[in-house]
């Protein structure tokens, strides 16, 4: 058994010890008073409790979480307490390099980038998080239904998805933005409209895989309702994978927003986002590199933290990864 697996099994001392050579000294008769040690004396630990315990004992997860917390706090409070407003121009102080007055410098219109970066963080975090979660949730529900029921339900849902994914996403997005404007909410909605199909497909595949497994069959034989089967028997098994794709979907959503602002469908000014700031920064990075690197590094670090946290979360949640 690999070192990795041992680490993963955490506080429960490893089954791996069984592989070491056995000698007679290892066997000692059980003393009189301890005959009943195999009786369960502590309360049984529930799935979620166990997951929580695992995650709080993971240093990497806690450091990542701490970083994310700092970013969130700054996003919430920095624009409120900052010296400058994020949308106020100062045409006399354009493209100022980072200094004591403007910690992150200023942009082409002399707007303070410290304020803009943290306002942008709000948008990016909200759009990133919900733009990742909402399509996944829709996908889980729809994919779950398709995968579990199969037959014509599956058929209809899958055909809708087959057609839906082939229509350029820009058409949906343009339509939504046109009728609902282009704030963070319509953006999340647009992403949901585009993104649910992919995750529904994936979930369906996973569910079909698990549907014929013994524990599901057992649950079914015992009279479990479809809801119970999907959400209690199958779902925990695919949750780990879902968490990973969720952490992958967050940067996806953040970049999607940047890409949309690149082609004119992103967050409308005066609001801004990290994606948009780095997009603008990238357009003249040779002249004002700080305008690219500050938002760029923040995006990368945040996503790194999310990824590492997601990894630990997956380890904590997936029943396959512990025994």
């Amino acid at each position: 058994m690999s070192v990795a697996e041992e680490r993963m099994s955490g506080t429960e001392k490893g089954a791996g010890k069984g592989m070491s050579p056995v000698s007679a000294e290892d066997f000692v008769p059980v003393p009189e008073g301890e005959r009943d040690t195999d009786v369960i004396v502590r309360p049984s630990v529930s799935y979620w409790r166990d997951a929580l315990r695992r995650i709080t004992h993971d240093k990497v997860a806690m450091v990542s979480l701490g970083f994310i917390a700092v970013i969130v706090l700054l996003a919430v409070f920095a624009p409120v307490f900052g010296r400058y407003n994020y949308e106020t121009n100062n045409l006399m102080a354009t493209n100022v390099k980072p200094c004591g007055e403007h910690w992150f410098g200023t942009d082409t219109l002399g707007r303070d980038l410290w304020a803009r970066v943290w306002v942008g963080a709000r948008v990016s975090l909200v759009v990133g998080l919900f733009g990742a979660i909402v399509p996944q949730v829709i996908g889980i529900v729809v994919g779950g239904i398709a995968g579990y029921f199969g037959g014509w339900v599956d058929m209809v849902i899958m055909r809708i998805i087959d057609v839906g994914v082939c229509i350029p996403e820009l058409i949906y997005i343009t339509l939504i933005m046109l009728y609902l404007g282009s704030g963070p909410l319509p953006l999340v909605l647009a992403m949901a409209m585009v993104g649910w199909m992919g995750s529904a497909r994936m979930i369906r595949g996973r569910i079909m895989q698990f549907k014929s497994r013994e524990f599901v069959l057992a649950s079914k034989t015992l009279g479990g309702s479809p809801f119970h089967l999907i959400f209690r028997s199958i779902f925990p098994n695919i949750l780990g994978q879902q968490v990973v794709s969720l952490t992958a979907a967050i940067p996806g959503a953040i970049f999607m927003e940047a890409y949309l602002s690149f082609i004119g469908l992103g967050i409308q000014s005066p609001l801004t986002s990290w994606g948009q700031l780095s997009q603008v920064g990238a357009s003249n990075y040779r002249l004002h590199p700080y305008q690219l690197f500050i938002p760029g590094i923040l995006i990368s670090l945040t996503i790194l933290a999310l990824y590492l946290f997601g990894n630990s979360l997956r380890d904590a949640l997936d029943p396959h990864l512990r025994d």
């Binding site: 121009n89 082409t108 219109l109 004119g264 469908l265 000014s269 005066p270 603008v280 357009s283």
Partner: peptide, 17 residues
């Protein structure tokens, strides 16, 4: 206005003024 980086900056600047 239509999507264009310069149009955007101009719009932002005018609106702020």
């Amino acid at each position: 206005t239509y999507e264009n980086a310069e149009q955007k900056l101009i719009g932002e600047a005018i609106i702020d003024q």
